[in-house]
Design a protein around this nucleic acid. Structure first.
Lengths: 284, 284
DNA sequence: AGTCGGGCCTGACGCAGGGTCAAGGTCAAG
DNA sequence: CTTGACCTTGACCCTGCGTCAGGCCCGACT
Protein backbone atom coordinates (compact mmCIF):
# COMPACT_ATOMS: atom_id res chain seq x y z
CA UNK A 1 0.00 0.00 0.00
CA UNK A 2 2.84 2.37 0.75
CA UNK A 3 4.40 3.66 -2.41
CA UNK A 4 7.75 4.19 -0.75
CA UNK A 5 10.14 1.35 -1.30
CA UNK A 6 11.69 -0.02 1.81
CA UNK A 7 15.09 -0.20 0.21
CA UNK A 8 16.93 3.06 0.55
CA UNK A 9 15.51 3.39 4.02
CA UNK A 10 17.59 3.80 7.12
CA UNK A 11 17.12 2.63 10.63
CA UNK A 12 16.98 5.25 13.28
CA UNK A 13 20.65 5.33 14.23
CA UNK A 14 21.93 5.83 10.72
CA UNK A 15 19.26 8.33 9.96
CA UNK A 16 20.03 10.31 13.07
CA UNK A 17 23.72 10.55 12.23
CA UNK A 18 22.89 11.47 8.67
CA UNK A 19 20.56 14.21 9.67
CA UNK A 20 22.63 15.44 12.57
CA UNK A 21 20.02 14.90 15.26
CA UNK A 22 19.88 12.49 18.17
CA UNK A 23 18.00 9.22 18.24
CA UNK A 24 16.07 10.50 21.19
CA UNK A 25 14.87 13.52 19.25
CA UNK A 26 13.53 11.26 16.50
CA UNK A 27 11.74 9.16 19.12
CA UNK A 28 10.28 12.36 20.45
CA UNK A 29 9.08 13.55 17.04
CA UNK A 30 7.59 10.15 16.35
CA UNK A 31 5.65 9.97 19.57
CA UNK A 32 4.28 13.45 19.18
CA UNK A 33 3.26 12.68 15.61
CA UNK A 34 5.57 15.19 14.02
CA UNK A 35 7.59 12.71 11.98
CA UNK A 36 6.23 9.19 11.80
CA UNK A 37 8.43 6.80 9.84
CA UNK A 38 7.38 3.42 8.52
CA UNK A 39 7.96 0.37 10.65
CA UNK A 40 9.78 -2.79 9.67
CA UNK A 41 8.49 -6.26 10.51
CA UNK A 42 10.37 -6.30 13.80
CA UNK A 43 9.08 -2.93 14.83
CA UNK A 44 12.15 -0.94 13.83
CA UNK A 45 11.56 2.52 12.51
CA UNK A 46 12.47 2.93 8.85
CA UNK A 47 13.24 6.44 7.63
CA UNK A 48 13.06 7.20 3.90
CA UNK A 49 14.37 10.16 1.88
CA UNK A 50 10.98 11.83 2.15
CA UNK A 51 11.38 11.69 5.91
CA UNK A 52 14.76 13.35 5.59
CA UNK A 53 13.20 16.17 3.65
CA UNK A 54 10.53 16.64 6.26
CA UNK A 55 13.06 16.46 9.05
CA UNK A 56 15.08 19.20 7.40
CA UNK A 57 11.99 21.36 7.31
CA UNK A 58 11.32 20.62 10.93
CA UNK A 59 14.88 21.45 11.88
CA UNK A 60 14.71 24.71 9.95
CA UNK A 61 11.56 25.88 11.71
CA UNK A 62 12.91 24.72 15.03
CA UNK A 63 16.02 26.76 14.40
CA UNK A 64 13.83 29.80 14.04
CA UNK A 65 12.57 29.13 17.54
CA UNK A 66 9.13 27.89 16.59
CA UNK A 67 7.83 25.31 19.08
CA UNK A 68 7.37 21.77 17.85
CA UNK A 69 3.61 21.58 18.24
CA UNK A 70 3.29 24.68 16.12
CA UNK A 71 5.62 23.21 13.53
CA UNK A 72 3.31 20.25 13.35
CA UNK A 73 0.37 22.50 12.54
CA UNK A 74 2.35 24.59 10.10
CA UNK A 75 3.48 21.60 8.09
CA UNK A 76 -0.08 20.34 8.01
CA UNK A 77 -2.01 23.49 7.24
CA UNK A 78 -0.03 24.97 4.44
CA UNK A 79 1.60 28.32 3.85
CA UNK A 80 -1.07 30.69 5.11
CA UNK A 81 -0.20 30.13 8.71
CA UNK A 82 3.46 29.84 7.89
CA UNK A 83 3.65 33.43 6.70
CA UNK A 84 1.96 34.66 9.84
CA UNK A 85 4.10 32.53 12.03
CA UNK A 86 7.31 33.74 10.47
CA UNK A 87 6.28 37.31 10.99
CA UNK A 88 5.49 36.74 14.63
CA UNK A 89 8.66 34.82 15.15
CA UNK A 90 10.71 37.61 13.66
CA UNK A 91 9.30 40.02 16.19
CA UNK A 92 9.76 37.59 19.04
CA UNK A 93 13.37 37.13 18.05
CA UNK A 94 13.90 40.87 17.85
CA UNK A 95 12.61 41.13 21.40
CA UNK A 96 14.93 38.42 22.60
CA UNK A 97 17.82 40.07 20.90
CA UNK A 98 17.11 43.32 22.66
CA UNK A 99 17.14 41.55 26.00
CA UNK A 100 20.40 39.83 25.20
CA UNK A 101 21.93 43.10 24.15
CA UNK A 102 20.86 44.70 27.38
CA UNK A 103 22.36 41.85 29.34
CA UNK A 104 25.61 42.12 27.44
CA UNK A 105 25.78 45.85 28.01
CA UNK A 106 25.25 45.25 31.70
CA UNK A 107 28.01 42.66 31.84
CA UNK A 108 30.35 44.94 29.95
CA UNK A 109 29.69 47.70 32.47
CA UNK A 110 30.28 45.27 35.31
CA UNK A 111 33.57 44.16 33.82
CA UNK A 112 34.66 47.76 33.61
CA UNK A 113 33.94 48.09 37.30
CA UNK A 114 35.94 44.96 37.95
CA UNK A 115 38.91 46.21 36.00
CA UNK A 116 38.82 49.45 37.93
CA UNK A 117 39.68 47.39 40.98
CA UNK A 118 36.25 47.32 42.60
CA UNK A 119 35.95 43.60 43.05
CA UNK A 120 33.40 43.49 45.79
CA UNK A 121 30.23 41.60 45.09
CA UNK A 122 28.05 44.49 46.05
CA UNK A 123 29.64 47.08 43.80
CA UNK A 124 29.58 44.76 40.79
CA UNK A 125 25.96 43.85 41.33
CA UNK A 126 25.01 47.46 41.93
CA UNK A 127 26.47 48.38 38.58
CA UNK A 128 24.61 45.57 36.84
CA UNK A 129 21.33 46.57 38.44
CA UNK A 130 21.94 50.17 37.52
CA UNK A 131 22.55 49.38 33.85
CA UNK A 132 19.61 46.99 33.63
CA UNK A 133 17.25 49.45 35.27
CA UNK A 134 18.44 52.02 32.78
CA UNK A 135 16.08 50.90 30.08
CA UNK A 136 12.93 49.13 31.09
CA UNK A 137 10.35 51.85 31.82
CA UNK A 138 6.93 50.39 32.23
CA UNK A 139 4.57 51.47 29.49
CA UNK A 140 1.75 52.24 31.91
CA UNK A 141 3.22 55.73 32.29
CA UNK A 142 3.55 56.44 28.58
CA UNK A 143 0.13 57.90 28.17
CA UNK A 144 0.96 60.96 30.23
CA UNK A 145 3.70 62.07 27.87
CA UNK A 146 4.01 63.24 24.31
CA UNK A 147 6.23 61.04 22.21
CA UNK A 148 9.14 63.42 22.38
CA UNK A 149 8.70 64.01 26.08
CA UNK A 150 8.83 60.27 26.71
CA UNK A 151 12.10 59.96 24.84
CA UNK A 152 13.54 62.95 26.64
CA UNK A 153 12.52 61.48 29.95
CA UNK A 154 14.31 58.26 29.09
CA UNK A 155 17.40 60.18 28.10
CA UNK A 156 17.41 62.22 31.28
CA UNK A 157 17.01 59.11 33.37
CA UNK A 158 19.84 57.40 31.58
CA UNK A 159 22.13 60.34 32.13
CA UNK A 160 21.48 60.35 35.83
CA UNK A 161 23.57 57.80 37.73
CA UNK A 162 21.72 55.44 40.01
CA UNK A 163 23.35 56.88 43.08
CA UNK A 164 22.15 60.37 42.34
CA UNK A 165 18.64 59.13 41.75
CA UNK A 166 18.69 57.26 45.02
CA UNK A 167 19.92 60.34 46.84
CA UNK A 168 17.06 62.31 45.36
CA UNK A 169 14.56 59.75 46.48
CA UNK A 170 15.93 59.84 50.00
CA UNK A 171 15.78 63.62 49.99
CA UNK A 172 12.18 63.61 48.80
CA UNK A 173 11.28 61.08 51.45
CA UNK A 174 12.77 63.40 54.02
CA UNK A 175 10.88 66.42 52.70
CA UNK A 176 7.73 64.33 52.50
CA UNK A 177 7.87 63.49 56.18
CA UNK A 178 8.62 67.09 57.08
CA UNK A 179 5.61 68.17 55.11
CA UNK A 180 3.48 65.64 56.95
CA UNK A 181 4.65 67.12 60.22
CA UNK A 182 3.68 70.58 58.97
CA UNK A 183 0.46 69.47 57.36
CA UNK A 184 -1.76 71.70 59.48
CA UNK A 185 0.17 74.88 58.86
CA UNK A 186 -1.10 77.61 56.62
CA UNK A 187 0.11 76.89 53.10
CA UNK A 188 1.08 80.51 52.87
CA UNK A 189 3.27 80.32 55.96
CA UNK A 190 6.97 80.70 55.64
CA UNK A 191 7.65 77.11 56.70
CA UNK A 192 5.18 75.72 54.17
CA UNK A 193 6.60 77.84 51.39
CA UNK A 194 10.11 76.75 52.29
CA UNK A 195 9.22 73.07 52.15
CA UNK A 196 7.38 73.55 48.89
CA UNK A 197 10.38 75.21 47.37
CA UNK A 198 12.55 72.31 48.42
CA UNK A 199 10.08 69.88 46.94
CA UNK A 200 9.92 71.64 43.62
CA UNK A 201 13.69 71.80 43.46
CA UNK A 202 13.95 68.08 43.97
CA UNK A 203 11.28 67.44 41.37
CA UNK A 204 13.33 69.41 38.94
CA UNK A 205 16.00 66.73 38.99
CA UNK A 206 13.50 64.42 37.38
CA UNK A 207 12.78 66.60 34.38
CA UNK A 208 16.05 68.45 34.16
CA UNK A 209 14.32 71.63 33.17
CA UNK A 210 12.71 70.04 30.12
CA UNK A 211 9.29 71.63 29.86
CA UNK A 212 7.55 68.78 28.01
CA UNK A 213 8.83 66.23 30.50
CA UNK A 214 7.76 68.44 33.38
CA UNK A 215 4.26 68.70 31.93
CA UNK A 216 4.12 64.92 31.60
CA UNK A 217 5.32 64.42 35.14
CA UNK A 218 2.65 66.79 36.39
CA UNK A 219 -0.05 64.98 34.46
CA UNK A 220 1.13 61.63 35.78
CA UNK A 221 1.32 62.94 39.32
CA UNK A 222 -2.21 64.36 39.14
CA UNK A 223 -3.57 61.07 37.90
CA UNK A 224 -2.00 59.00 40.66
CA UNK A 225 -5.39 57.56 41.62
CA UNK A 226 -5.59 55.81 38.27
CA UNK A 227 -2.10 54.33 38.17
CA UNK A 228 -1.90 50.54 38.14
CA UNK A 229 -1.76 49.24 41.62
CA UNK A 230 1.83 48.07 41.66
CA UNK A 231 3.06 51.42 40.36
CA UNK A 232 1.12 53.12 43.13
CA UNK A 233 2.66 50.77 45.64
CA UNK A 234 6.15 51.45 44.40
CA UNK A 235 5.71 55.15 44.83
CA UNK A 236 4.15 54.74 48.26
CA UNK A 237 7.00 52.49 49.29
CA UNK A 238 9.49 55.07 48.01
CA UNK A 239 7.98 57.54 50.46
CA UNK A 240 8.28 54.98 53.20
CA UNK A 241 4.52 54.60 53.52
CA UNK A 242 3.36 51.34 54.97
CA UNK A 243 1.75 49.14 52.37
CA UNK A 244 0.34 46.91 55.06
CA UNK A 245 -2.12 49.67 55.75
CA UNK A 246 -2.60 50.69 52.22
CA UNK A 247 -5.75 52.74 52.67
CA UNK A 248 -4.16 54.91 55.35
CA UNK A 249 -1.05 55.36 53.26
CA UNK A 250 -3.08 56.47 50.30
CA UNK A 251 -4.76 59.04 52.51
CA UNK A 252 -1.47 60.29 53.87
CA UNK A 253 -0.13 60.57 50.36
CA UNK A 254 -3.20 62.40 49.21
CA UNK A 255 -3.14 64.89 52.03
CA UNK A 256 0.47 65.73 51.29
CA UNK A 257 -0.21 66.24 47.61
CA UNK A 258 -3.18 68.43 48.47
CA UNK A 259 -1.03 70.45 50.82
CA UNK A 260 1.54 70.87 48.11
CA UNK A 261 -1.16 71.84 45.66
CA UNK A 262 -2.40 74.61 47.93
CA UNK A 263 1.10 75.80 48.74
CA UNK A 264 2.13 75.86 45.11
CA UNK A 265 -1.13 77.61 44.31
CA UNK A 266 -0.30 80.33 46.79
CA UNK A 267 3.22 80.60 45.47
CA UNK A 268 1.86 80.99 41.95
CA UNK A 269 -0.84 83.46 42.91
CA UNK A 270 1.82 85.69 44.34
CA UNK A 271 3.90 85.30 41.22
CA UNK A 272 3.74 86.62 37.68
CA UNK A 273 1.07 85.30 35.29
CA UNK A 274 3.57 83.72 32.89
CA UNK A 275 4.61 81.40 35.67
CA UNK A 276 1.00 80.58 36.43
CA UNK A 277 0.64 79.43 32.87
CA UNK A 278 3.91 77.57 33.02
CA UNK A 279 2.74 75.49 35.92
CA UNK A 280 -0.58 74.77 34.31
CA UNK A 281 -2.55 75.84 37.34
CA UNK A 282 -4.87 78.35 35.76
CA UNK A 283 -7.71 75.93 35.35
CA UNK A 284 -7.16 74.18 38.67
CA UNK B 1 17.86 36.29 67.58
CA UNK B 2 16.91 38.00 64.36
CA UNK B 3 18.14 41.54 64.24
CA UNK B 4 15.60 42.51 61.62
CA UNK B 5 12.53 44.17 63.00
CA UNK B 6 9.28 42.67 61.88
CA UNK B 7 7.72 46.03 61.26
CA UNK B 8 8.49 47.35 57.83
CA UNK B 9 8.10 43.82 56.49
CA UNK B 10 5.71 42.82 53.75
CA UNK B 11 3.74 39.71 53.17
CA UNK B 12 4.34 37.88 50.00
CA UNK B 13 1.68 39.49 47.84
CA UNK B 14 2.72 43.05 48.56
CA UNK B 15 6.35 42.18 48.25
CA UNK B 16 5.79 40.49 44.92
CA UNK B 17 4.01 43.52 43.48
CA UNK B 18 6.66 45.80 44.86
CA UNK B 19 9.48 43.84 43.36
CA UNK B 20 7.71 43.06 40.13
CA UNK B 21 7.83 39.29 40.44
CA UNK B 22 5.09 36.71 40.93
CA UNK B 23 4.14 35.13 44.21
CA UNK B 24 4.92 31.76 42.72
CA UNK B 25 8.46 32.82 41.90
CA UNK B 26 9.02 33.87 45.51
CA UNK B 27 7.67 30.51 46.67
CA UNK B 28 10.09 28.90 44.28
CA UNK B 29 13.08 30.87 45.54
CA UNK B 30 12.11 30.11 49.09
CA UNK B 31 11.84 26.40 48.57
CA UNK B 32 15.11 26.21 46.73
CA UNK B 33 16.80 28.19 49.49
CA UNK B 34 17.64 31.15 47.31
CA UNK B 35 15.64 33.73 49.24
CA UNK B 36 14.29 32.64 52.59
CA UNK B 37 12.20 35.28 54.33
CA UNK B 38 11.25 35.27 57.99
CA UNK B 39 7.98 33.72 59.02
CA UNK B 40 5.25 35.28 61.08
CA UNK B 41 3.48 33.46 63.89
CA UNK B 42 0.83 32.14 61.53
CA UNK B 43 3.33 30.90 59.01
CA UNK B 44 3.11 33.80 56.59
CA UNK B 45 6.30 34.77 54.85
CA UNK B 46 7.59 38.19 55.88
CA UNK B 47 9.92 39.98 53.49
CA UNK B 48 12.13 42.78 54.79
CA UNK B 49 14.09 45.47 52.96
CA UNK B 50 17.17 43.28 53.10
CA UNK B 51 15.22 40.66 51.22
CA UNK B 52 14.31 43.22 48.61
CA UNK B 53 17.96 44.02 48.13
CA UNK B 54 18.81 40.39 47.72
CA UNK B 55 15.92 39.84 45.37
CA UNK B 56 17.14 42.68 43.21
CA UNK B 57 20.53 41.04 43.01
CA UNK B 58 18.91 37.75 42.11
CA UNK B 59 16.79 39.39 39.45
CA UNK B 60 19.83 41.10 38.01
CA UNK B 61 21.81 37.88 37.68
CA UNK B 62 18.77 36.09 36.36
CA UNK B 63 18.40 38.77 33.75
CA UNK B 64 21.89 37.99 32.59
CA UNK B 65 20.73 34.44 31.99
CA UNK B 66 22.52 32.84 34.92
CA UNK B 67 20.62 29.83 36.24
CA UNK B 68 19.15 30.08 39.72
CA UNK B 69 21.24 27.38 41.34
CA UNK B 70 24.37 29.14 40.17
CA UNK B 71 23.06 32.44 41.46
CA UNK B 72 22.68 30.78 44.82
CA UNK B 73 26.33 29.78 44.82
CA UNK B 74 27.49 33.15 43.53
CA UNK B 75 25.71 35.06 46.26
CA UNK B 76 27.18 32.73 48.82
CA UNK B 77 30.75 32.43 47.65
CA UNK B 78 31.69 35.98 46.97
CA UNK B 79 33.08 37.84 44.01
CA UNK B 80 35.76 35.44 42.80
CA UNK B 81 33.28 33.17 41.13
CA UNK B 82 31.14 36.10 40.12
CA UNK B 83 33.84 37.53 37.90
CA UNK B 84 34.33 34.18 36.19
CA UNK B 85 30.66 33.65 35.82
CA UNK B 86 30.08 37.01 34.22
CA UNK B 87 32.79 36.34 31.72
CA UNK B 88 31.36 33.00 30.75
CA UNK B 89 27.89 34.40 30.56
CA UNK B 90 29.02 37.14 28.25
CA UNK B 91 30.34 34.57 25.82
CA UNK B 92 27.26 32.41 26.11
CA UNK B 93 25.11 35.43 25.35
CA UNK B 94 27.25 36.30 22.35
CA UNK B 95 26.66 32.78 21.04
CA UNK B 96 22.95 33.07 21.51
CA UNK B 97 22.90 36.37 19.77
CA UNK B 98 24.65 34.91 16.79
CA UNK B 99 22.05 32.19 16.53
CA UNK B 100 19.23 34.69 16.80
CA UNK B 101 20.81 36.82 14.13
CA UNK B 102 21.07 33.84 11.84
CA UNK B 103 17.43 33.00 12.44
CA UNK B 104 16.40 36.56 11.72
CA UNK B 105 18.41 36.65 8.54
CA UNK B 106 16.73 33.43 7.45
CA UNK B 107 13.29 34.80 8.16
CA UNK B 108 14.09 38.00 6.32
CA UNK B 109 15.14 35.97 3.29
CA UNK B 110 11.97 33.93 3.52
CA UNK B 111 9.85 37.06 3.65
CA UNK B 112 11.54 38.32 0.54
CA UNK B 113 10.59 35.09 -1.18
CA UNK B 114 7.03 35.54 0.04
CA UNK B 115 6.83 39.07 -1.27
CA UNK B 116 8.09 37.90 -4.62
CA UNK B 117 4.87 35.93 -4.87
CA UNK B 118 6.28 32.48 -4.11
CA UNK B 119 3.89 31.57 -1.35
CA UNK B 120 4.21 27.81 -1.48
CA UNK B 121 5.31 26.10 1.68
CA UNK B 122 8.12 24.29 -0.05
CA UNK B 123 9.77 27.31 -1.62
CA UNK B 124 9.65 29.28 1.62
CA UNK B 125 11.11 26.44 3.61
CA UNK B 126 13.76 25.78 0.99
CA UNK B 127 14.90 29.35 1.27
CA UNK B 128 15.05 29.16 5.05
CA UNK B 129 17.04 25.95 4.93
CA UNK B 130 19.38 27.43 2.39
CA UNK B 131 20.12 30.51 4.47
CA UNK B 132 20.53 28.53 7.66
CA UNK B 133 22.85 26.03 6.05
CA UNK B 134 24.87 28.94 4.81
CA UNK B 135 26.90 29.23 7.96
CA UNK B 136 27.20 26.22 10.19
CA UNK B 137 30.30 24.28 9.02
CA UNK B 138 31.26 21.60 11.45
CA UNK B 139 34.59 22.22 13.03
CA UNK B 140 35.81 18.67 12.49
CA UNK B 141 37.05 19.75 9.08
CA UNK B 142 38.92 22.80 10.24
CA UNK B 143 42.16 21.06 10.86
CA UNK B 144 42.75 20.42 7.19
CA UNK B 145 42.81 24.10 6.36
CA UNK B 146 44.95 27.12 7.12
CA UNK B 147 43.05 29.85 8.84
CA UNK B 148 42.74 31.91 5.71
CA UNK B 149 41.79 28.93 3.60
CA UNK B 150 38.98 28.10 6.03
CA UNK B 151 37.57 31.59 5.78
CA UNK B 152 37.85 31.54 2.02
CA UNK B 153 36.06 28.23 1.90
CA UNK B 154 33.23 29.69 3.97
CA UNK B 155 33.02 32.64 1.68
CA UNK B 156 32.93 30.51 -1.45
CA UNK B 157 30.24 28.31 0.02
CA UNK B 158 28.17 31.30 0.96
CA UNK B 159 28.42 32.74 -2.50
CA UNK B 160 27.21 29.53 -4.11
CA UNK B 161 23.43 29.18 -4.03
CA UNK B 162 22.03 25.98 -2.61
CA UNK B 163 20.60 24.93 -5.94
CA UNK B 164 23.97 25.09 -7.66
CA UNK B 165 25.58 23.09 -4.88
CA UNK B 166 22.90 20.47 -5.16
CA UNK B 167 23.37 20.28 -8.91
CA UNK B 168 27.06 19.76 -8.38
CA UNK B 169 26.44 16.99 -5.94
CA UNK B 170 24.13 15.26 -8.37
CA UNK B 171 26.70 15.62 -11.12
CA UNK B 172 29.43 14.15 -8.94
CA UNK B 173 27.17 11.30 -7.99
CA UNK B 174 26.66 10.61 -11.66
CA UNK B 175 30.37 10.72 -12.42
CA UNK B 176 31.03 8.57 -9.39
CA UNK B 177 28.78 5.81 -10.66
CA UNK B 178 30.29 6.06 -14.12
CA UNK B 179 33.73 5.67 -12.61
CA UNK B 180 32.58 2.62 -10.73
CA UNK B 181 31.40 1.11 -13.99
CA UNK B 182 34.79 1.83 -15.51
CA UNK B 183 36.78 0.82 -12.46
CA UNK B 184 38.69 -1.95 -14.22
CA UNK B 185 39.84 0.16 -17.13
CA UNK B 186 43.39 1.31 -17.49
CA UNK B 187 43.71 4.68 -15.70
CA UNK B 188 45.58 5.88 -18.72
CA UNK B 189 42.75 4.98 -21.09
CA UNK B 190 40.86 7.69 -22.83
CA UNK B 191 37.62 6.92 -21.01
CA UNK B 192 39.34 7.02 -17.62
CA UNK B 193 41.07 10.27 -18.42
CA UNK B 194 37.79 11.76 -19.61
CA UNK B 195 36.01 10.83 -16.40
CA UNK B 196 38.87 12.12 -14.32
CA UNK B 197 38.78 15.43 -16.12
CA UNK B 198 35.09 15.71 -15.45
CA UNK B 199 35.64 14.90 -11.80
CA UNK B 200 38.34 17.50 -11.38
CA UNK B 201 36.19 20.11 -13.05
CA UNK B 202 33.36 19.44 -10.64
CA UNK B 203 35.75 19.56 -7.72
CA UNK B 204 36.83 22.97 -8.89
CA UNK B 205 33.40 24.36 -8.07
CA UNK B 206 34.15 23.64 -4.45
CA UNK B 207 37.33 25.69 -4.24
CA UNK B 208 36.59 28.20 -6.96
CA UNK B 209 40.19 28.21 -8.10
CA UNK B 210 41.46 29.26 -4.67
CA UNK B 211 44.72 27.42 -4.22
CA UNK B 212 44.76 27.31 -0.43
CA UNK B 213 41.22 25.97 -0.32
CA UNK B 214 42.06 23.38 -2.93
CA UNK B 215 45.02 22.22 -0.89
CA UNK B 216 42.79 21.91 2.17
CA UNK B 217 40.18 19.99 0.25
CA UNK B 218 42.84 17.60 -0.99
CA UNK B 219 44.17 17.07 2.52
CA UNK B 220 40.68 16.45 3.84
CA UNK B 221 39.87 14.09 1.00
CA UNK B 222 43.03 12.09 1.58
CA UNK B 223 42.27 11.72 5.25
CA UNK B 224 38.74 10.45 4.73
CA UNK B 225 39.47 7.36 6.81
CA UNK B 226 39.91 9.52 9.87
CA UNK B 227 36.85 11.69 9.51
CA UNK B 228 34.26 11.42 12.26
CA UNK B 229 31.78 8.75 11.43
CA UNK B 230 28.79 10.94 10.69
CA UNK B 231 30.80 13.08 8.30
CA UNK B 232 31.89 9.94 6.50
CA UNK B 233 28.30 8.79 6.34
CA UNK B 234 27.12 12.08 4.93
CA UNK B 235 29.64 11.88 2.14
CA UNK B 236 28.82 8.25 1.43
CA UNK B 237 25.13 9.09 1.34
CA UNK B 238 25.84 11.97 -1.01
CA UNK B 239 27.32 9.42 -3.43
CA UNK B 240 24.26 7.27 -3.02
CA UNK B 241 26.18 4.54 -1.21
CA UNK B 242 24.13 2.32 1.01
CA UNK B 243 24.83 2.96 4.67
CA UNK B 244 23.09 -0.25 5.65
CA UNK B 245 26.10 -2.07 4.31
CA UNK B 246 28.61 0.41 5.47
CA UNK B 247 31.70 -1.73 5.10
CA UNK B 248 30.96 -2.47 1.45
CA UNK B 249 30.24 1.18 0.80
CA UNK B 250 33.53 2.21 2.32
CA UNK B 251 35.29 -0.25 0.02
CA UNK B 252 33.48 1.04 -3.03
CA UNK B 253 34.35 4.58 -2.08
CA UNK B 254 37.95 3.66 -1.51
CA UNK B 255 38.32 1.89 -4.80
CA UNK B 256 36.96 4.89 -6.65
CA UNK B 257 39.32 7.28 -4.90
CA UNK B 258 42.20 4.95 -5.65
CA UNK B 259 41.20 4.82 -9.27
CA UNK B 260 41.05 8.59 -9.35
CA UNK B 261 44.40 8.77 -7.68
CA UNK B 262 46.01 6.60 -10.31
CA UNK B 263 44.28 8.42 -13.14
CA UNK B 264 45.25 11.83 -11.83
CA UNK B 265 48.74 10.51 -11.27
CA UNK B 266 48.95 9.50 -14.91
CA UNK B 267 47.52 12.81 -15.99
CA UNK B 268 50.11 14.64 -13.95
CA UNK B 269 52.98 12.47 -15.06
CA UNK B 270 52.16 13.35 -18.60
CA UNK B 271 51.96 17.00 -17.74
CA UNK B 272 54.40 19.75 -16.94
CA UNK B 273 56.18 19.79 -13.56
CA UNK B 274 54.60 23.03 -12.38
CA UNK B 275 51.26 21.33 -12.46
CA UNK B 276 52.68 18.34 -10.63
CA UNK B 277 53.68 20.71 -7.89
CA UNK B 278 50.39 22.51 -8.03
CA UNK B 279 48.51 19.34 -7.34
CA UNK B 280 50.84 18.38 -4.56
CA UNK B 281 51.47 14.93 -5.94
CA UNK B 282 55.24 14.96 -5.99
CA UNK B 283 55.64 13.25 -2.71
CA UNK B 284 52.80 10.80 -3.25
C1' DA C 1 23.57 -24.26 20.39
C1' DG C 2 24.72 -20.76 23.23
C1' DT C 3 26.03 -16.29 23.94
C1' DC C 4 28.06 -11.80 23.13
C1' DG C 5 27.57 -7.24 21.47
C1' DG C 6 25.22 -3.67 19.15
C1' DG C 7 21.18 -1.68 17.89
C1' DC C 8 16.47 -1.12 18.68
C1' DC C 9 12.09 -0.87 21.45
C1' DT C 10 9.02 1.30 25.21
C1' DG C 11 8.41 3.60 29.56
C1' DA C 12 9.65 6.63 33.01
C1' DC C 13 11.99 10.25 35.43
C1' DG C 14 14.66 14.68 35.34
C1' DC C 15 16.11 19.60 34.07
C1' DA C 16 14.60 25.16 34.58
C1' DG C 17 11.53 28.39 35.97
C1' DG C 18 7.95 28.74 37.17
C1' DG C 19 2.03 28.61 35.78
C1' DT C 20 -1.99 26.91 37.38
C1' DC C 21 -5.23 24.67 40.10
C1' DA C 22 -6.88 22.60 44.65
C1' DA C 23 -7.80 22.10 49.44
C1' DG C 24 -7.49 24.36 53.35
C1' DG C 25 -5.67 28.02 57.19
C1' DT C 26 -5.70 33.36 58.86
C1' DC C 27 -7.44 37.54 59.63
C1' DA C 28 -9.96 41.86 59.57
C1' DA C 29 -14.44 43.81 58.33
C1' DG C 30 -19.32 43.70 58.17
C1' DC D 1 -20.53 34.25 62.26
C1' DT D 2 -19.76 34.68 57.74
C1' DT D 3 -17.48 36.63 53.87
C1' DG D 4 -13.64 37.65 51.10
C1' DA D 5 -8.92 38.76 50.51
C1' DC D 6 -4.81 36.79 51.30
C1' DC D 7 -1.86 33.10 52.79
C1' DT D 8 -0.16 28.07 53.14
C1' DT D 9 1.53 23.53 51.01
C1' DG D 10 1.17 20.01 47.49
C1' DA D 11 0.80 18.42 43.03
C1' DC D 12 0.56 18.37 38.17
C1' DC D 13 1.61 21.08 33.56
C1' DC D 14 4.74 23.12 30.00
C1' DT D 15 9.40 22.46 26.32
C1' DG D 16 12.69 19.61 24.18
C1' DC D 17 14.74 16.51 24.82
C1' DG D 18 18.91 13.58 28.11
C1' DT D 19 19.43 9.65 30.55
C1' DC D 20 18.68 5.47 32.49
C1' DA D 21 16.23 0.72 32.85
C1' DG D 22 14.63 -3.53 31.19
C1' DG D 23 13.91 -6.27 27.29
C1' DC D 24 13.64 -7.76 22.08
C1' DC D 25 16.08 -8.69 17.55
C1' DC D 26 19.82 -10.02 14.89
C1' DG D 27 24.35 -11.23 13.11
C1' DA D 28 28.79 -13.11 14.62
C1' DC D 29 31.82 -15.81 17.31
C1' DT D 30 32.86 -20.02 19.90
Amino acid sequence: MVSRAMSNCYRIGQFARLAGVTVRALHHYDRMGLLKPQRGTSGFRLYCPEDLERLEQIAALKFLGIPLHEIKLLLKHGPLKLVDSLHMQREALAEKRKLIDRAMVAIAAAEKVIQSGQTTDASILRKIIEVIDMQPQEKSMRKYYTEQAWLDRERIRQQTPLETRQKNVRAMRQVFSEIEAAIDLDPASERAQYLTKQWLQLAEYAHGGNEAVRAGNTQAWNDFQNWPRDEQDKLLAAFDLDLNDRAASMLRFESVTKFLGRAVGHKIRSSIPSIRTLYGLDQA
